[in-house]
Design a protein around this nucleic acid. Structure first.
Lengths: 160, 160
DNA sequence: ACGCTCATTGACGTTTGCGTTAATGGTAAA
DNA sequence: TTTACCATTAACGCAAACGTCAATGAGCGT
């Protein structure tokens, strides 16, 4: 019970332009993320052009979620995704040279990071649920007031 | 069936220092929000010192929520709270001089704004729930892997 | 070989959301 | 009144997260 799916093509094959299109960010942003350590330096073709893989695209989408949903800064996100690189190390060196204690400590790190994200999300979810309830209450109240005013209008100027 | 509670003291009575303490933002921030139209110009005492009301404090807290939970910019928040000022107008001029159609159109505006916030929250909530599920899946998978590795460790070096 | 598009690095510009003086004046207790 | 804090406006500063050139080179069809 191992390989769920053949390793999806994660060979670097797409150029920065298409990577930008696929992720919805600009080329500048991709280079910027690389500069800040959010994306690993991609492989290059002979001329020096960057070649991104699907994994890179996935990561950018993850970054965007962490930004928009959790409101994390790039610095914070960097800390999180750094630990995600362990994932690729695990994949590359899977069942091979690393000692078992080493692999255990890495996966513990991953669990820790994932748990942190989960905690943040849980907090936000709770706060947002509360806010949503509040808004629904206000909506109800406003609609009631509106109905009342509509009633009063008919008392003054009867049905047109 | 009218007044739920005697109108809580919304007479302007607290100075900027305490308003800052109560809201958790700085004095600078309060003046900045005023500058940007997020807070109505407060009343002043003879010397020119600002006097805030509880309503102002509430509004700042609302602004903070819209920032941290929804990630809105101050410009976006301004649009939203501007329509909230209708609330105070409604309160101040309640059951008095405004024509009924006028009051109806104002409350419709409020409903619209509240509905917008509700929509944004609903979207975010859905996206976050999804992300949370995903994280929980990863956690489970990682913990399973960890357990498996722990098992392998014992095969190599039996119980200490 | 030519032209066209796309990429690369580097540097400077921009917007947001405040922080931080600086210089001045109001208010309240002793 | 003097001291000790407030507060006021105005102006400059700053970090984050990119945008926007500018000059140069790569790749590719004809």
């Amino acid at each position: 019970m191992a390989e769920k799916r053949a390793r999806t093509q994660d060979e670097p094959c797409i150029q920065i332009g298409e990577a930008a299109d696929r992720t919805g960010v600009t080329q500048r942003t991709l280079r910027f993320y690389e500069e800040r350590g959010l994306l690993k330096p991609p492989t290059r073709m002979e001329g020096g052009f960057r070649l991104y893989s699907q994994d890179d695209v996935d990561r950018v989408e993850q970054i965007k979620r962490l930004q928009s949903l959790l409101g994390l800064t790039l610095a914070e996100i960097k800390d999180m995704v750094e630990a995600e690189e362990v994932k690729e190390e695990l994949r590359a060196t899977a069942r091979s040279d690393l000692s078992i204690p080493e692999r255990i400590s890495r996966i513990k790190k991953r669990i820790e990071v994932t748990q942190r994200q989960h905690d943040i999300i849980s907090h936000k979810l709770a706060a947002m649920e509360e806010m949503k309830q509040d808004l629904e209450g206000r909506l109800e109240h406003n609609r009631a007031t509106l109905a009342e005013l509509d009633g009063q209008r008919e008392e003054v100027a009867p049905a047109p």
